[in-house]
Nucleic acid binder design. Structure first.
Lengths: 174, 174
DNA sequence: TGCAATGTAAAACGTACGTTTTACATAGAT
DNA sequence: ATCTATGTAAAACGTACGTTTTACATTGCA
């Protein structure tokens, strides 16, 4: 496992569990098992590191959304929260923490959310046999809602969202 | 306008716009127009101030949810985002920023979310004429989803959530 | 054999943090 | 008239921040 990979993995864990601002670089060097000199050689800066974390997370998350149905979309989210836990969306959280004032972070978030939105439109179109942007928007809201409601309602929130989406899809099909 | 009110209003604005951790107390004293001595006399500590901000926000938000129908619930959210903007849920955000490690904040968030959940169950029961916890969970997910999707999708997200809720409610009524 | 490259350990950089303290002004109630 | 409460201004508290630097060890390739 090379240094950059180890660093990004450690950073994602700490940023996600304790927050971006609340995580100091000292704590990060310890968690990543490397000197601050090496850390800065690979990361550039804290903000760049966060951006790299988000890019990597986007890759991992989007890989799970390569499905053919809306139902599978929610099944993928169920898997995701089982593996990653329920701490809300790291993209929105990091943007909010920095007030949108850190360009690297704001850009990584915008890129991810655009891809997320597009992927949902594609899945809805595939599942339905035709495009339906309004329905895709509803599915997006349900996915985002499940992610954030799960923080305090647990996995029930994801099941509820899945059931609601199934009803909306069935209605659109007839 | 007394000092405490002025302080809480200024704190809510800064915490919401720039994040809890990213907002320094110096910046806060300037925004609130008072010395740090006075600020600490009224606030106690930064964490206590955040907790007070959340309690006050809970009061203001919950007051808007004193409605009789699910449709009015989403209309209330539309009004809220029009007035307060779309930066996500300050409760979940502040809990995430502190990793749940700040008791005053974690408690204020838990209290609010419990009240929020209960209010939704009540409104669904009123609207439907009978209790329906599963449907209430779906409405909760839609409200939470609208709040967070609106950050990058704008007010369309709220309209989409409202429309989806109307479909779910209609279906439950027959 | 020697020279890049890549790593560690640890101190130092200046700055900014949350909080407390010191010293002083003002105003209303007894 | 004075005491108490409430406020300001500004310095100081110790700590922790993100980042850079200094000095040194290891290793793989020319």
């Amino acid at each position: 496992m090379d240094m950059t990979t180890k660093l990004i993995a450690a950073a994602e864990r700490l940023f996600d569990r304790h927050g971006y601002m609340a995580t100091g670089m000292d704590r990060l060097t310890v968690a990543a098992g490397m000197s601050s000199r090496t850390l800065y050689k690979h990361a550039g800066s804290k903000a760049q590191l966060m951006a790299r974390v988000l890019t990597e997370r986007d890759r991992r998350f989007m890989a799970r959304l390569q499905v053919q149905s809306v139902d599978a979309l929610f099944a993928a989210l169920e898997d995701w929260v089982r593996v990653e836990g329920t701490r809300g969306c790291l993209f929105l959280r990091s943007r909010a923490e920095t007030g949108g004032d850190t360009p690297e972070i704001a850009e990584a978030v915008a890129t991810h959310k655009a891809a997320f939105h597009q992927r949902i439109e594609e899945v809805v179109a595939t599942d339905l046999g035709r495009e339906n942007p309004a329905l895709a928007e509803q599915v997006l809201v349900l996915l985002e809602g499940a992610t954030h409601a799960a923080v305090y309602r647990g996995t029930d929130a994801v099941s509820a969202a899945k059931a609601a989406a199934a009803i909306l899809m069935k209605r659109a099909r007839t």
